[in-house]
């Protein structure tokens, strides 16, 4: 078997944007009904990284979010809890205490989220602090300016250094695809992050518009697939920001199912970075079980 093209971040890998959009449109035409819908709604709920990342976050707000994470809707006791709660480093101890007895993970953003415009030592300090506070997962940002300049080695080294600081703690690398401009850059950044040590790749901070989109997610899933088929190593995926409706979440799951297959359809390998999505999923689950849509006031806003 002769060697053929290798996938890496230094080789250009052409991507046709129109073609990607057509593929997404075709996947969106999948009709998910009955049992498969209920299964998808519950699965999506279990994959949520329930997120609050605001300057005004306080322990009170974070505690409220953690309670929601543990028990999304008390009227339906059989529901899964969400995958994780995602907060700023200073809020990690609060969340950790609330979630201690559960499987719900605490994820912390770090590396001077969301812009990342500080020197590497500060990013590493930020990361070590979050881990000391008890974070199970670290969501870092890449230096988009350096990436767009073509300074790939700089970005690579930063990610590798953060990964080193993380040790066994799960590292999610945020590409901030809304700032990368082209799908080819998204592909390149995905491979760069994967090769530098990312456990997960993540679309967005949620602070830049557009945040997660399906075309971007598809390109990242395809990068994960190609890397898996080349090395046998699985990488996780997290679209974040802009996913508010259950219908969108199901469309994302279809993307995962038909690009990566069943192995990735678990919170271990796929997450949604979202907050308002939770209530829409709950509303649809209640609708599926009872046959009626309930008023939004029946669902807690957290």
């Amino acid at each position: 078997m002769q060697e053929q093209i290798k996938y890496d971040y230094l080789t250009n890998y052409p991507i046709d944007e129109v073609g990607v959009e057509e593929r997404v449109a075709r996947l969106n035409s999948r009709s998910i009904k009955k049992e498969s819908k209920i299964q998808a709604l519950k699965l999506a709920l279990s994959m949520i990284d329930l997120t609050t990342l605001e300057g005004k976050d306080s322990p009170g707000k974070v505690i409220q979010l953690c309670r929601k994470a543990l028990q999304p809707h008390s009227e339906l006791p059989g529901l899964p809890s969400v995958a994780a709660v995602c907060v700023y480093p200073t809020m990690v101890p609060v969340a950790k205490k609330e979630l201690e007895a559960s499987d719900v993970k605490v994820a912390s953003v770090s590396t001077a989220f969301p812009a990342g415009m500080v020197k590497l030592s500060a990013k590493l300090e930020d990361t070590r602090f979050a881990i000391e506070q008890g974070a199970d997962e670290i969501d870092m940002v890449i230096s988009r300016g350096e990436f767009l300049k073509g300074n790939y080695n700089f970005v690579f080294d930063e990610i590798a250094a953060v990964k080193d600081a993380c040790g066994d703690v799960h590292l999610k690398v945020i590409l901030e695809t809304g700032e990368l401009g082209t799908l080819e850059n998204v592909r390149k950044a995905s491979f760069l992050a994967i090769h530098a040590g990312a456990d997960f790749i993540k679309t967005s901070t949620g602070k830049i518009s557009p945040a997660a989109t399906q075309p971007v997610t598809l390109v990242m899933l395809e990068a994960i697939r190609d890397h898996y088929l080349e090395t046998g190593k699985m990488i996780g995926m997290k679209p974040a920001g802009g996913i508010r409706k259950a219908k969108q979440a199901i469309q994302y799951l279809v993307l995962v199912k038909e690009t990566l297959g069943a192995a990735w359809l678990t919170p271990e390998w796929f997450r949604f970075g979202a907050s308002s999505l939770t209530n829409d999923l709950l509303m649809q689950i209640v609708k599926q079980e009872s046959g009626i849509y309930q008023c939004t006031d029946y669902f807690s806003n957290d």
Binding site: E35, S36, G261, A262, L265
Partner: peptide, 8 residues
Amino acid sequence: FSSFWEYS
């Protein structure tokens, strides 16, 4: 591509 979540 076939197991776990099948479309109804």
